[in-house]
Design a protein around this nucleic acid. Structure first.
Lengths: 235, 235
DNA sequence: CGCTTCTGTTATAGACTATAACTGTTGCGA
DNA sequence: TCGCAACAGTTATAGTCTATAACAGAAGCG
């Protein structure tokens, strides 16, 4: 391999082929789950044979990692593209949550990719962690102006400690809530709670645990988010 | 196969071997994840060779299904064994939630087994669904006496409709909250919200998404549950 | 006491990941 | 413009794993 070029016609063709491979992989993923993803089948589908794929992805895990990274990026874009109703943070929060759920429900297999843990000892590469953070970034300003309920005090305290210890996180949050340390801690607290709430409703829905039950993921999410908005007295 | 006997020394030996296989499988699962589970390795570990395992489990999926079913049963037992502080529903709710999280954190691989979706089109067998329901049963009476916040109205309405349409669910809930339809709908609403909350916090924690972040799953869960208790005005 | 059922074996087919060794092609610079 | 180095693709092959087939021995039940 040794540091492949980044420009020129060859690099362009290479990127295109990588994209085609990922497309085919996503199609397989959509119907067979992670187990259904077989490199040899992808290759056959693209008219090439077996080992040729290894020119583009070092291994099956490498391909999966690329798909995960893409999924985070795509999810972050979907959330970032959420409309701002312009009627205050509460409506904005609902818009963000709806956008995230909409993305997840439209492509469950990609959400499952994000949700899952490949292997117990696995730790995501830094680039992926940054993408994961990007998904949550739009939530920060929503909570910055909120007033957290007394029950959230323990989490707020932990967030304060985290912000003091980790400069990178502090910088990330401060960019979205530049109104002083208290607002920063509040923003981070609300965002983490929102993250957990989103994962609770969407994760269960996407995993099919709601089928045959008398409620929709839509209603459940809206209600949970509304409770969260009230806990922060959002206007 | 054809309807194997259920008593006698042979059946007993069979059950013991099945248990040993499942034990070995869980050990593999704990270190290698679902992908690390290889029937041939399990067999080697038990001193038998390869295909012998198929006398006890029809396939890899069959073994995984048994593990999932066991996990649900074990989780339900852990929740059912949660202590009752005796100081009202709010403390009881915290005790139930803590018990569930404790079980999940102690054996993450088994929680991931429950959480995961084997394949997109997969639907759990009825026996497993019943076990899944058993996990939530102790939560029902906690919410039966609560007063749901206005924001939960849409979910309550859907629960009412579900109860009216599905007699089995109605019977299940009524056994834990026999005070009339309104209390029944409230109990079911609270339980579903609690389920979602639990999955949100525990799922993220067990999947390792909290590592390096400045908060603990413990604090986050307690806070979320406290917010839920307030939404139902639990005493 | 013999037969049937159950448990285990080896052999084997088939799918898949991954590497090795080799061949053809293409773009880039001297 | 021509040569070569980097690259894309091939077949062959090793190794792992699931699963079935065919067969051999042992245990229990009537």
């Amino acid at each position: 391999m040794a540091e492949a070029r980044t420009t020129g016609p060859r690099a362009r063709y290479r990127e295109q082929t990588r994209a085609e491979i990922k497309d085919a992989a996503l199609r397989q993923l959509a119907e067979g789950g992670t187990d259904g993803l077989a490199l040899v089948k992808i290759a056959k589908g693209l008219g090439m044979s077996g080992p040729a794929l290894y020119r583009y992805f070092a291994s099956r895990d490498d391909l999966l990692g690329a798909l995960i990274s893409d999924a985070y990026g795509d999810a972050a874009a979907a959330v970032a593209a959420a409309p701002d109703p312009g009627t205050g943070p509460r409506a904005r929060l609902h818009a963000l949550a709806t956008a995230y759920r909409g993305w997840a429900v439209a492509q469950p297999h990609r959400y499952l990719l994000i949700q899952g843990t490949p292997t117990p000892g696995y730790t995501a590469p830094p680039e992926t962690l940054a993408s994961a953070r990007a998904v949550l970034t739009p939530f920060l300003p929503v909570f910055a102006a909120g007033t957290p309920a007394p029950a959230t005090a323990p989490v707020v305290a932990q967030m304060r400690a985290w912000l003091a210890a980790d400069a990178a996180v502090a910088a990330w949050v401060a960019a979205s809530a530049p109104d002083g340390t208290e607002a920063v801690a509040t923003a981070l607290t609300g965002t983490v709670l929102a993250w957990s709430t989103l994962h609770g409703t969407i994760g269960l829905e996407v995993s099919g645990h709601f089928t045959g039950m008398g409620h929709t993921g839509d209603t459940l999410l809206t209600t949970q988010i509304e409770l969260l908005a009230e806990a922060f007295s959002l206007g």
